Computed example of a mutant assay.
Amino acid sequence: MYPSKQEPTYGAPPAANAYYGAPPPSTGLPVTVPPGGFQLQAHLPTIGPWSTGLCDCGDDTRNCCITCLCPCITFGQVAEIIDKGSTSCGASGALYVLILCVTGCSCLYSCFYRTKLRAQYGLREEPCNDCLVHCCCEYCSLCQMYRELTRRGFNMDIGWHANMERQGHMATMPPPPQSMSR
């Protein structure tokens, strides 16, 4: 009933085929799983391109100007949407400024949000590593993240909760406190 096991020799790694037999041949046809058995399937996200390039600021000059003058505003708006409302725009922007003042390098914080955005929407890591993009072209990267979320239907000026209400979803908010009554 079970494939015969061969005892591994000590000091050498066991071969998978020695324990479980040879894997079935790959035919390209669907495989039926016997009752009581299971089949593991890897779910890999679809990797696609960004909707705009890193330096495509021509269609959104308003955001590019805001980002050049005060990048903490753009970062706060982007972070609130990526975090799905768990952090506010103001708190994220303030933390961005604090990290900039203490380290002089806010890209250490903002590059993680580029990675989170790519993971949420299955975007390619282009033109190079996320941290390198933020260290070399932080303002362009913030603008690209802003444009990506805008093209995916978010109104960046109203925040996460208002976007969810606008889309017909109930934003997850705690129930209002109730007073005790007799």
Rank of each mutant, 00 (worst) to 15 (best):
Q178W: 03
S92W: 03
T32K: 13
A22F: 09
G168D: 06
V33E: 10
L123D: 01
Y109W: 09
G53T: 04
S141M: 05
H43K: 08
K5W: 00
D130I: 00
T9G: 07
F38W: 09
D56G: 10
L117V: 03
D130Q: 07
D56T: 07
R182C: 06
G53I: 02
P34S: 11
H169K: 12
Q39N: 07
I73Q: 10
Q120G: 02
T46F: 00
I73D: 09
P14A: 04
S92H: 04
Y146M: 03
Q167K: 15
G48M: 04
A16F: 15
C101Y: 13
G159E: 02
R62F: 12
M170W: 03
L54S: 06
M173D: 10
C128S: 11
R151Q: 13
P25H: 12
P45H: 07
G28Y: 00
C101H: 14
T27V: 09
A22E: 03
G104C: 08
C107Q: 01
E7W: 10
C143S: 08
T103E: 07
L69D: 06
R62W: 02
Q41E: 06
V31K: 13
C68V: 01
V133P: 00
P45Q: 11
C131V: 02
G48K: 10
V133E: 00
H134A: 11
P34Y: 04
E165V: 11
T52E: 14
G85D: 12
H134C: 14
M180I: 14
C64Q: 01
K116H: 09
L117M: 10
E125C: 13
C131H: 10
A12F: 00
A171Q: 08
V97E: 14
G90Q: 12
G93A: 02
